[in-house]
């Protein structure tokens, strides 16, 4: 759902840039306070993984495809949506400047949607549901993160006059509701993999293993 140049009028793109820069300020403050030596490599590996997996478009019905965002994954693993903002900022900036994936004028909006909104949605859903079942919470957090981000894009497209509001919401919601299943599954698999090799990197492992050992 990388927005290209020309889909958002420049004055609106500027507003999204400002919101994103404010979010980045808070995200860097989080990093300053919370990143320890072993979480820097974790974030960097997640950035590499997310860059690669975003190139792996999965086919869905209606001649369409999609890829995971990874914001929920980062937020859950690092225990903060601000971590997702940082990792997705890096990934989306590299995609925009080197590969033309997402317009440079739309980079603020793209970070806002796929980093800030997806990260906070994923983390919020995970926090709400983790008491019920950890893995169900992770799956739904992954699904919700991309679905809500897609709805945000549809609203931006409607505000920009680029898509009609009703059809934009319908198609963006429909496609990403399906892609969200892949996002949820890959998020679960990635966290299972991290738990297998480095349970100490996951926040909940400090609180006692009983919660995760089923």
């Amino acid at each position: 759902m990388h927005i290209p140049d020309g889909f958002i009028p420049l004055w609106q793109a500027a507003i999204y840039y400002v919101i994103t820069i404010v979010a980045l300020y808070f995200a860097l403050n989080w990093a300053k306070q919370n990143l320890d030596e072993k979480r820097v490599p974790l974030m960097a590996v997640l950035a590499a993984f997310i860059f690669a997996i975003q190139a792996m478009n999965i086919p869905i019905p209606w001649g369409t495809s999609g890829h995971m965002l990874g914001a929920a994954l980062v937020a859950i693993v690092l225990g903060s949506p601000w971590a997702a903002v940082l990792v997705l900022t890096v990934v989306l900036t590299v995609q925009g400047f080197f590969f033309g994936d997402g317009g440079i004028t739309a980079l603020g909006a793209n970070i806002l949607d796929m980093g800030v909104i997806a990260g906070f949605t994923g983390y919020g859903v995970f926090t709400l549901l983790k008491k019920l079942n950890l893995w169900v919470a992770i799956f739904i957090a992954g699904w919700a993160s991309i679905f809500v981000a897609a709805i945000a894009v549809a609203i931006q497209m409607a505000l920009a006059g680029t898509f009609p509001a009703d059809l934009g919401l319908f198609f963006m919601g429909l496609y990403h509701g399906v892609i969200g299943i892949a996002e949820g599954l890959i998020t679960v698999i990635a966290i299972l993999a991290i738990q297998r090799v480095r349970p100490d990197l996951l926040l909940w492992s400090n609180k006692g293993k009983a919660e995760v050992e089923k």
Binding site: M1, H2, I3, G6, F7, A55, M56, N57, I58, P59, W62, G63, T64, S65, G66, H67, A150, V153, A154, A160, G161, T162, F163, P164, L167, G168, F171, M172, Y175, H176, I179
Partner: peptide
């Protein structure tokens, strides 16, 4: 990877106003 358009491109193919 699938070469089909992604969700946003697919929506744009159908409903783009600009």
């Amino acid at each position: 990877a699938s070469a089909d358009p992604d969700g946003l491109e697919s929506a744009a193919e159908k409903i783009l106003l600009v």
